[in-house]
Each structure stands twice: as C-alpha cells, then as structure tokens.
C-alpha cells in the first residue's frame, strides 16, 4: 500500500512530466534547459542561461510563464538601464502632492533578465539583491516580492564588447547555470515544421501557485541520506584543494566553490530525484546537477585558459576524482 509521502512524490513526478510535455509543445529538444528552469522554480532558486542567440532561451521562459499562469516580465538589459527601471521608484503625484511608489518590472513571478551582462554593475546588483533578499526597497519602504519569484537571466557567450561581466560573488547567487547548445538536425527539422505554420502554440496552464507549492513541499520530503550529504560536501571541498599532487585538476581552479554551492547541489539533487519520481536521492542525482550548480561558481585559473579548459571539463575531472558513496 502506498504511503502518503510516496503518493505526493508520485503526484509531483506526474505533474513535472505533464509540465515538461506542455513546454515540449513549444520547445523542441533543449531538455536540460527545460529541466533547469523547472528545477529553479521548484527549488526556489534563480537560473542563469548561457547560449548564443536564437536557441529558444526567451521562448523557454515564456513557455514556462504560460504553463504556470504566473505574472511574467521581460527586461532587456542595456548599457543605459538604471536600477530604478528595474525595481521601481518614487514618483510625485500632483493631485495629492505626495510621492508614491511605482513598482518596477521586478515585481513579477517570473522575470526574464535578457542579456544581463549588457547592463552596468549597479543594475545587475539591484536585480541580484532582489534575488537574494526576495524584497525591494523603494524610497523608505521595503516591499516583498511575489511568491513564487523566479529570475531567469540570459547571457551571450559571444559579442563580449561593451558588456559588463557578472562578478563571481553575484554569479554565486544563481542557483544554477544552464548551457544551451544547438539542436540536432532532427530537432531543428521539427522546429521548422512546428514553428512555420503555428508560431504561437497554446499551452495548458498545468502549474499554478498552489501546485508549485505542492512541488516544493514534495521536494522537502525527498530524503538525502548522510552518505549523499557527505558526497556533496566532498565534491565541493575537492574544488578547493590546493595540493596539485593530490588532485591534479585543481591547477585549473583559482577559486573553488562556496558553501552556497553545497546548498545548491543539495537542493537541486532533491529536485532531480523528484523528476524521477523517487523519494530519496541517489549519487546519480548529485552527479546530474553538479555541472549546472558548479559551472558558474568555479573561477578558473590562467592555466585552464591557456589549455582551453572550460568549467565543464574541470567539473568532469572533479567528478572523476571523488568516490561515490
């Protein structure tokens, strides 16, 4: 006989699959991006997406907003954007003769910060502060952000001229970083057939605020045994080892991951288990989420750059160096 917890997990798994299917109507392939977005919204974190233009990054977020019946705002980051354009400002109302707050686009459930690295640091900071605190201060008043509050920021790995690279401390605020790659020819053919005739495919609203909360609650019930927790800590600790003889790959790492990374892996691994309809975390769940959770948190060394090693290659070495429980 099924226990209550197992039923919740099963229901959550089914709901996630249904959401995937709905999003799949618009997004062909890009399963890691779709899973990353869902993981972010369920784990209560924010997602940074990196990919060249035209890979359905914006479309994916819009699709997510459409299936969640949530308030969605898209902010195009530009060099002349100001923090107040994002968070809001106090405006003078002539009729009453007083200053009233005018909330910015950040007051939404789902915010797409498009090309976040094109805005200057003060704008990035304003958004990242909202992401970290879950509240925004306008004038002397602090306003809580709506629940759920989910930010997906995109950045383009090419065209680096005139951009403002996100500082490492701010990158750390993103729960995970998804990389979007080109679709396969077969997937691209499906995109062609689907989008040419019917670019706006209607989606069912399978997620609402209550269901998102249900998913979050179900995630909370997913067990991660001590062995799993130790494994996560070992992985993050290995990224900070300075002894090159012990772990040769560490020469590619200037700064390892922070304890925030440990928490991120833990949260994401539980959601990953939920994706598979399991009430417990396995080492494969941890391994599946480590690249997404660590790739923006590792500061690579000059040697890595010289040898054209990217963070994913370093993370592969890291995963190969730590024994699974």
């Amino acid at each position: 006989m099924e226990s209550g917890n197992e039923k919740n997990i099963k229901d959550a798994g089914e709901l996630i699959n249904k959401t995937r299917q709905e999003m799949g109507k618009r997004i062909v392939g890009q399963s890691s991006l779709v899973d990353g977005l869902l993981m972010g919204i369920i784990a209560g974190g924010h997602v940074l997406v990196e990919g060249v233009p035209g890979l359905a990054k914006t479309l994916a977020v819009k699709a997510l907003a459409d299936v969640t019946s949530a308030m969605f705002k898209r902010i195009q980051f530009t060099p002349d954007l100001l923090p107040a354009d994002l968070t809001g400002t106090m405006i003078y109302r002539q009729q009453t003769g007083e200053f009233v707050p005018r909330k910015g686009p950040v007051f939404s459930n789902i915010v797409l910060a498009d090309e976040i690295n094109r805005a200057p640091a003060k704008v990035q900071s304003a958004l990242l502060e909202a992401m970290a605190e879950g509240q925004v201060t306008i004038g002397e008043q602090t306003y809580p952000l709506p629940d759920p509050f989910f930010v997906m920021a995109t950045q383009n790995p090419i065209e680096q001229e005139g951009t403002y690279r996100l500082p490492e401390a701010q990158l750390d605020r993103f729960l995970l970083k998804a990389k979007v790659d080109y679709p396969s020819p077969a997937e691209e053919l499906v995109v062609l057939e689907r989008m040419v005739d019917n670019p706006e495919i209607p989606l069912l609203r399978v997620l609402d605020r209550e269901r998102v909360r249900q998913l979050k609650n179900a995630t909370e019930t997913v067990k991660a045994e001590e062995g799993i927790r130790r494994y996560i800590v070992s992985l993050v600790a290995a990224s900070r080892v300075k002894d090159r003889r012990k772990l040769p790959f560490t020469r590619y790492i200037e700064y390892g991951a922070s304890p925030r990374a440990t928490l991120a892996i833990y949260r994401c691994a539980r959601v990953q288990a939920l994706f598979d309809g399991r009430s417990f975390v396995l080492p494969e769940d941890v391994k599946a989420v480590v690249p997404m959770a660590l790739r923006h948190r590792l500061v690579l060394s000059y040697e890595a750059e010289a040898e054209q090693m990217d963070s994913d290659a370093v993370i592969s070495s890291l995963l190969a160096a730590v024994s699974v429980p």
């Binding site: 396995l282 160096a321 024994s323 699974v324």
Partner: peptide
C-alpha cells in the same frame, strides 16, 4: 557502504574502468 566500496574497487581493478567514482547507473 563497506561492501559496495570494496566491490567498486574490485570492479575498477578488474575492468580498468574507474568504478569508484561511477554511480550504479
């Protein structure tokens, strides 16, 4: 924990694949 660790070490040596850092899947 002890048995699977020893088993993974055995498999690594016998197969010349790294089974210590490989998950069951």
């Amino acid at each position: 924990y002890e048995l699977t660790e020893a088993l993974r070490a055995y498999l690594s040596d016998r197969l010349n694949h790294d089974c210590r850092s490989a998950t069951t899947a």
